[in-house]
């Protein structure tokens, strides 16, 4: 099974959508009046922490920018494949560079699972980058030597 991604719909001209990752599960997928009811409740407390309220609960949040070199996409399958043979296609509709994530009471911090997960984008590079061939032949690693010699 393979799924093709159609990037032709990605449009840089329209304003990117506002994404909010909420600390609750909403049993609904579909249109909602976010701009009318949620967005007006967002306040910046001046210390880099955002506050909002949703269904009477206070939320604390922060903006997460994607690291350089990464882009966010919302992929949508417009037509469900009827049979197994039919190729599935995801359409990339909206592009984003940042989103807001919300916690219940705790202000966002580096201890949050999400912030740690964002580290992965960077760290995975080091694991998957091709190894340096020259070092490979020596069988040693210059940097390690330096660090090993220090107490």
């Amino acid at each position: 099974m393979s799924v093709e991604v159609d990037l032709s719909g990605v449009n840089g001209e329209t304003a990117p959508p506002k994404l909010h990752l909420l600390p609750c599960e909403i049993e609904h997928t579909g249109p909602a009046q976010v701009a009318q009811y949620f967005t007006p409740s967002i306040r910046d407390n001046g210390q880099g922490v955002l506050q909002a309220s949703f269904r009477g609960r206070e939320l604390r949040g922060g903006t997460v920018s994607l690291p350089d070199g990464y882009t966010g996409l919302v992929l949508k399958e417009k037509h469900k494949a009827v049979s197994d043979e039919e190729a599935r296609v995801f359409h990339a509709g909206q592009k984003f560079q940042e989103f807001t994530y919300w916690n219940m009471e705790t202000p966002p911090s580096r201890n949050d699972a999400l912030q740690k997960a964002m580290h992965w984008l960077d760290i995975s590079k080091a694991i998957h980058a091709p190894v340096d061939r020259n070092i490979s032949q020596n069988g040693s690693h210059t940097r390690v030597k330096l660090e090993d010699s220090s107490p």
């Binding site: 959508p17 990752l21 997928t29 579909g30």
Partner: peptide, 27 residues
Amino acid sequence: FQEEFRSWFIGESIQQDGSLHMVTPVD
């Protein structure tokens, strides 16, 4: 990346599934 009890607001819509998929190069 999935946590329990997460959903997305995307523009003027809700997406129940609050997971964030990270696509990173693999050797």
